[in-house]
């Protein structure tokens, strides 16, 4: 993932492979996992809802039994890679109140099933997400994956580490480009990098890159029983560091930094999107401190 970030690779590896793949793997759903891995079927997780903000337990979408089928109703927002997905994994409530942790199931729904209404739109990084309405969507009871909301925990942890690693790659891309720019750009008859104020800002950015790298390494090496907490912490730390480095990179590039012509702006936009993988830094921070 770090290499993908460094290369500013605009492919939905996180959204269409790691996130749905980890969930299907945990559920033992090899029938769908195999075509996903082969790249013949595009799968997306439809979990977030507007009213939920970043609360993973907030699921207003319902799944009601009808004979040997299940009827799904609700609206999912910010479905990453949802615009082009062939199959959607939809979280829906089978019992309990809207914010109860219990009573949530995951269902495989073909994206072209009757009652599925998709609206695709672009995110800051150019990727296509979707807002998807499910109106009386009927699927076989066997479309339900084994597992409840807890099955999302390893998915969130893996996705957070992957997002942190990609952000780390983007940080190194931003840092290297900016360092080279301040060494070559001259103003007032000397390189920008010869000004102490620039040196200190670049030093601050260097410290953030190194600290971010350590957090990513630390989470990657975390024992299984502490992995979710370590990944939440790494993601919270790296997201804030990456945004700071991106803002510094834009400022150091001056007018050029705010154009669409350099990788700088594209990296900033990608970081903005990655920083919200399963919630913002605050949400990840809360998971980190609550699990302590």
């Amino acid at each position: 993932m770090e290499a993908l970030g460094r290369g500013l690779v605009a492919e939905p590896v996180l959204d269409a492979a790691i996130i749905p793949g980890t969930l299907l793997d945990g559920a033992g759903a090899t029938a769908l996992l195999d075509p996903l891995m082969a790249g013949t079927t595009l799968v997306a997780l439809a979990h977030a809802e507007r009213e939920a903000r970043y609360n993973l337990a907030h699921v207003g979408t319902t799944a009601r039994p009808r004979g040997d089928t299940v009827v799904i109703d609700g609206i999912k927002s910010a479905v990453l890679a949802g615009g082009a997905a062939d199959v959607l994994i939809v979280s829906a409530r089978q019992s309990g109140g809207t914010r109860d942790r219990d009573g949530i199931g995951f269902f495989q729904v073909p994206a072209d099933a009757p009652g599925v209404d998709r609206r695709s739109y672009r995110l800051a990084d150019g990727s296509v997400a979707a807002e998807i309405a499910f109106r009386g969507v009927e699927v076989a009871a066997s479309a339900q994956l084994p597992g409840d909301l807890d099955s999302l925990t390893p998915v969130v942890a893996t996705a957070r580490l992957a997002a942190a690693a990609e952000m780390l790659g983007l940080m190194t891309l931003l840092f290297d480009n900016t360092l080279s720019y301040v060494k070559t750009r001259t103003q007032f008859g000397q390189s920008l990098g010869s000004f102490q104020v620039i040196q200190h800002r670049m030093t601050d950015a260097y410290v953030l890159v190194e600290q971010a790298r350590s957090q990513v390494v630390r989470a990657a090496l975390a024992p299984a029983d502490d992995f979710a907490r370590a990944a939440a912490g790494a993601k919270a730390f790296v997201a804030e560091a990456a945004l700071t480095v991106a803002h510094t990179a834009v400022q150091m590039h001056g007018g050029m930094g705010v154009t669409d012509e350099l990788v700088i702006g594209h990296a900033l936009k990608r970081i903005r999107v990655l920083a919200l993988t399963f919630g913002d830094a605050t949400a990840a921070l809360d998971d980190y401190r609550r699990a302590a």
């Binding site: 927002s77 999107v273 919200l276």
Partner: peptide, 14 residues
């Protein structure tokens, strides 16, 4: 403001 809108704040119409 971007952060206030949560996931909706990520949209960027062309």
């Amino acid at each position: 403001a971007v952060e206030m809108f949560g996931y909706d704040g990520l949209q960027l119409a062309t």
